[in-house]
Amino acid sequence: MNIDRVLQSLAKNEVDYLLIGGVNFLLRHAPEITYDIDVWIADNPKNLERTVTFLKSINAEWGATEDDWKPVPDTTTWLTLQPVFCLTSPIAAIDIFREVKGLENRYDVCKAAAIAAETASGVPFWALSDQHMLEAQLALPVNQQKSQRIEVLNKAIKNASDA
């Protein structure tokens, strides 16, 4: 299915990434309405090249403006211009983050704490840990925070520490 194919393509192209956002929360905790897949990538030249290869493999499109929407370029320059990109593809809407609010400059720490998980179809993926998901939520303005997600994450972290 579509998000499985995105995760498979990330692995096939050896992208250094973490699954974050609603899909990560849904896969590891509870239902949540979301329609895109949020991917945090390691921000280094080699990984940006791999990310471009991955995006091209799923026919992703992006534009600096909506009138300039087109298949992603072959080079990585465009990926260095902003911290986040919202792309389309025939299989899923994808958000690529080079930075995550609340977790700035901590990709390596977050990757070291990441969870190796699987989707229902058995597709493996790297998931941002509960603690770091919570920190990212709490770094958002209050009106953008998801209270259900914060409550569930707090419970999961407490249960893990009690166990």
Binding site: G63, E66, Q82, P83, C86, A93, D95, K101, L140, P141
Partner: peptide, 19 residues
């Protein structure tokens, strides 16, 4: 680089128009 929540909202709005 711009503050992310604002930039994310701009990117999402652009995608909606382009899709």
């Amino acid at each position: 680089m711009q503050a992310m929540p604002n930039k994310k909202e701009q990117e999402e709005a652009k995608r909606e128009k382009a899709w």
